[in-house]
Design a protein around this nucleic acid. Structure first.
Lengths: 231, 231
DNA sequence: TGAATAGTGTCTCTTAGACAGTATCAC
DNA sequence: GTGATACTGTCTAAGAGACACTATTCA
């Protein structure tokens, strides 16, 4: 692997990764934004991301950026690829930049630790983030990432990625309510969550809060929800 | 936009596109394969694809390759992005190649017209294609593309993309049977296809074949199937 | 005792799956 | 008529949505 190609028979691109990081904070669906301090779009808000290095896989680059810009490790988030964005004019620089976008889901994540190439990073409610004038095509990427999370809640078990290792069924319901932006019937939700094979398993512990103590659960082995939970 | 960057501050990549083209031929789910004649993996079978040019969007590149290697135009197929593949060693050449893969679905497509950079192109049943020793990481891309088609049949209306403009309900059922590899009850399928709002609409014409004449349908406006049709 | 939270039970209507029969053509 | 294909109808059991009640704790 070399920095410069031996032949000029192919067009030259830069490859970046951008990450839609989603978590629940105070019952609200939030995403991580950074204020840019690089060579272009300086001062504007953007999704965390950066160039993929010559010697790392795409997924490794996404994890590295998560670590550098938000101090999040592999154990903290569920990461999955969203799509590649490569319109000719998506980057104002005079070379082509294709961005491979990712969605990262995590439980009530810590306040971000700004890295070298950002002035500031912060959690922003998704609705507010979409109001801000994000850099590049990041408004589109953010919309796509949120829609990905919304639809995958229906037929996969990724809702547990928004929860800590041990959680209550009402916590899980609040994930659905926050991501979908609508209330769900607690009784029907409880029945569905328990009847979906491999979705959640009892941990044996109980949580003592204000009212009746609640059973605690952990995520099960299943990846898909059968039957699905519909919006 | 220039061929060479003004700065060397970012790693240099090539960006390719590869296409999982799926169609039904004689009731079998088939994909288009080409025999490579380029600089690497010469003589091996691979998915059609090539480098993205400096002045075209990713989707434009996919349509261009479809046209050059299979004489398929925008009206012939439903095209959607699959994922980006960019492992460090996915290409044996000494520079990084990130491939943006696409899935193209079409109705009984014509025999391919080989283009300049292939010895031969042909439709191959998916099961057989997975047996062949495809170049690069194309076995993985093909598996992912087929799985994408399989799952999207359940909750979207893309099954109609495998049919010509006018089709019979049993034709549509055979699409599901071929892609899913399992038989479906004709009576229940008919009921579901007709009850899903916006899935199919009567064209008014009838088809006269061996038995009782059948009503003809066209695809409706809906993009999602409500309720879904389950495997 | 009352407020807060967790959990269970029941009813009804719709739908999914299984299955049998009828309709319309070519020959 | 016979064979082939298309289409319609019915039964039953399970699930979805709507809703009311009980349980356990703290203050």
């Amino acid at each position: 692997m070399v920095a410069e190609p031996h032949t000029s028979k192919y067009p030259i691109f830069a490859v970046a990764c951008d990450i839609v990081t989603l978590t629940l904070r105070a019952g609200q669906l939030c995403t991580l934004l950074v204020r840019r301090s690089g060579s272009v779009h300086t001062g504007r808000w953007a999704l965390p991301g950066g160039f993929v290095r010559q010697d790392e896989n795409l997924e490794q680059a996404a994890y590295r950026e998560l670590w550098e810009e938000a101090a999040l490790g592999r154990g903290d988030v569920h990461l999955e690829q969203l799509a590649a964005y490569g319109d000719v004019h998506r980057d104002p620089r005079d070379y082509r930049v294709v961005s491979v976008a990712w969605v990262a889901l995590g439980a009530d994540l810590p306040n971000p630790a700004p890295a070298t190439d950002v002035d500031r990073a912060e959690w922003v409610p998704v609705e507010e983030a979409l109001q801000r004038d994000l850099a590049f095509d990041h408004p589109q990427i953010l919309r796509d990432g949120v829609e990905r999370a919304r639809s995958k809640l229906e037929y996969t078990t990724i809702a547990t990625a928004f929860c800590p290792a041990s959680f209550r069924i009402p916590d899980l319901r609040r994930v659905y309510e926050a991501v979908w932006g609508q209330k769900l019937d607690p009784r029907n939700f409880q029945r569905k969550a328990l009847s979906a094979a491999g979705f959640i398993v009892e941990s044996g512990e109980t949580h003592h809060g204000r009212g009746r103590p609640s059973k605690l659960y952990r995520r099960g082995q299943a990846e898909f929800l059968t039957p699905p939970i519909s919006r």
